[in-house]
């Protein structure tokens, strides 16, 4: 079976004042159906650029990105929007909810533009809200709810269109440790229910929930850690050790 996501030698070059800078320098990897992959790396290593390019928010200078066999690096603007809406889900550090919409409306927004029948929209929202325990706050506004609830709302919105792949960008960055653990368990649970997730994080604890961690540095993949059958705690330790090694490299 083809991999869900195949990244093939992508390159992203920024040119400022005649000076070229490679934010991504020939990154290649694949993610299979049902994986939970973490992307780690120090600030400025190219994590965000990679996520933006994969998320079709930015376009690579060179290289191909195949999602389920479709090359999204070559899609036109309008087709990209549709692709993003129908096949990708996003969770951001700062939630990115719209203040003027209620929780329910925030969740259903991506469906509204696809002309989904109202009853189906309603039942999907209800089901997701139930699953993530936010049924009670469906009619409240984002400024009335907690950070953890906001992030769960964002997760529901990411899942509403049954995406093939979920991108999470530092999803725990703005949460306290309790809410962060809840969210990570939620994501891990989702993954067990066959949702493919790619998460960018700088936090070893968050990364330890993943099945596999890719380490990126100076625009290149430098390491790959696989959790395999080890426990989450053991994997956390492995990641920490790697980070220490990386940190001492940095110090040189």
């Amino acid at each position: 079976m083809n991999p869900l996501l195949q990244v093939d030698a992508i390159q992203k070059t920024y040119t400022t004042g005649g000076h070229a800078f490679n934010a991504l320098d020939g990154v290649s990897f694949t993610i299979d159906h049902g994986e939970f992959v973490g992307i780690m790396g120090p600030s400025g290593a190219g994590k965000s650029t990679l996520l933006n390019v994969l998320a079709t928010i930015d376009t690579p200078t060179d290289g191909d990105i195949f999602v389920d066999g479709e090359n999204i690096a070559k899609l036109e603007e309008e087709a990209l929007s549709d692709f993003r809406r129908d096949h990708l889900g996003f969770i951001f550090q700062d939630y990115n909810l719209l203040d003027s919409l209620t929780v329910r409306e925030n969740i259903l927004l991506p469906l509204a533009v696809t002309k989904t029948p109202i009853d189906e929209t309603r039942s999907r929202v209800e089901a997701l809200a139930h699953r993530f325990g936010i049924t009670a706050i469906l009619d409240q506004y984002p400024y009335q709810i907690s950070g953890g609830q906001k992030q769960r709302t964002a997760v529901c919105r990411a899942l509403i269109s049954n995406p093939k792949l979920i991108f999470a960008d530092e999803p725990t960055g703005a949460l306290d440790s309790k809410s962060a653990t809840d969210l990570l368990q939620t994501l891990a649970g989702l993954n067990e229910a066959e949702t493919t997730i790619m998460m960018v994080t700088h936090d070893a604890y968050a990364a330890s929930f993943c099945r596999r961690v890719l380490y990126i540095q100076d625009g290149r993949l430098s390491k790959e850690l696989i959790r395999g059958t080890t426990s989450r705690d053991a994997f956390y330790q492995t990641i920490l050790d790697e980070l220490k090694g990386g940190a001492s490299d940095d110090a040189v």
């Binding site: 549709d82 719209l98 927004l109 991506p110 533009v113």
Partner: peptide, 15 residues
């Protein structure tokens, strides 16, 4: 920022 969110969740420029 609001419209940037819209773009990120896959709502097209046209919409």
């Amino acid at each position: 920022a609001k419209y940037a969110v819209l773009r990120k969740v896959g709502i097209s420029k046209r919409d």
